[in-house]
Design a protein around this nucleic acid. Structure first.
Lengths: 211, 211
DNA sequence: AGAGAAATTAACCACTTGGTTAAACCATGT
DNA sequence: ACATGGTTTAACCAAGTGGTTAATTTCTCT
């Protein structure tokens, strides 16, 4: 009785490759089977339908993206550290899986309801709660005069935008700038620290706080 | 001899709606025909194949995205004005066509070569040249002590990221934050001016320049 | 070794897909 | 009126799609 079956794992890995690159509509079951080196019927034997197999991949993808940022924002660490952690996490993640963000974003554009399914079933996190904690931290720092008043939603969105968007633009960016793949990875590695620095700088108060 | 045929325009409009929302693979010719209120055979009569029709839509989409930023960056306007113009342009564009960025990015992930086709055939702009002009402007301002030294590629990428990415995240964002559509549009309208402000602030020198 | 269950395969199926075709329609000029 | 050209339609088609099935191989336990 093979619990973590080898075939099942190979199917999931192959499905990930194909779905990430081509999306639900563009992927072919035959292609996934070929990539896994097995018969097409096996896909339906392990995962009944294409959609079921896709859901497995997609929910796993969301699991890589959402919980980390939620728990980090809701932690007790100081602001600067949170930004560093989030930027580092996303840069590591997207350097190893560059197709991930477009895959997620295109899937949600085609069918936004898949997200709710994730929030309900997976992810034990409560977005409102963790975000509320982060909001309180901001308010405290503002009250202390350590940072200027700012909408935390903009703050987080700016951070994530600058971390993730460059990977979505990669195919366009490297062709317009005329950049090799290694150069892009070096370039984006600079951003790993540039982005949180910029975010921190953007919330510094106009004049330094009195001692 | 109808030059700007009504039917052709209706097809293009319908194709835009469907392709933007579902991408090349997800779109069905029948659905485009229904949306245009015509027979499916008409699509092939005006545009021979699905790909040809898609290319028309996609190249038009790139035309909305690329030339504006290129000409703006290459103009003689001061930096702050350039950032204002670009942010305003993208916010206007994406408020009216929210599906555009994911459509472009997903198309380029599936087939990056379509971009080269655009750069060659369309767009009379030379990326290297216009970007070189922008680079010189940065170097001048740095030499004058008006801004701190910064890689212009990061600068532009940060600007575009914070303008465009929120629209890609919209389906996820509004469901996690629990936001109505109108609230999102108000929220993103705040960013229209917040983003260029943040960008300008990020390049201010550490101490103000001597008079 | 051999029975029984699980895994794997090849062949097949109903249906959808993009695309075609031939006939019908309609406008215009003579 | 009618010939001519572009336009529109309904019916059709071959290829590809996700999915099924029944038979075969492989594994496991006694």
């Amino acid at each position: 009785m093979p619990e973590t079956d080898n075939t099942e794992a190979r199917i999931l890995e192959a499905a990930k490759q194909v779905f990430y690159r081509k999306g639900l509509d563009g992927a072919r079951m035959q292609e996934i089977a070929d990539e896994a080196g097995i018969n097409k019927a096996m896909l339906h034997y392990y995962f009944r339908t294409k959609e079921k197999l896709f859901d497995k991949i997609f929910l796993e993808a969301l699991g890589k993206i959402l919980p980390k940022i939620a728990t980090t924002l809701g932690s007790d660490a100081p602001l600067a550290e949170k930004f560093d952690v989030i930027s580092g996490y996303y840069h590591d993640l997207l350097l190893s899986t560059p197709y991930l963000p477009v895959f997620v974003v295109q899937t949600l554009q085609h069918n936004p309801d898949r997200l709710l399914q994730f929030i309900i079933t997976q992810s034990g996190i409560n977005p409102a709660e963790t975000f509320g904690k982060f909001l309180m931290q901001i308010q405290q720092e503002v009250a202390l005069g350590n940072i200027r008043p700012i909408d935390p939603r903009h703050l987080v969105l700016n951070l994530i935008s600058m971390c993730v968007f460059p990977f979505m633009m990669r195919p366009m960016f490297i062709r317009i700038i005329g950049m090799k793949d290694e150069a892009f990875e070096a370039f984006v590695n600079e951003r790993r620290h540039l982005v949180p620095q910029l975010i921190m700088q953007s919330i510094q108060p106009d004049q330094p706080p009195p001692d």
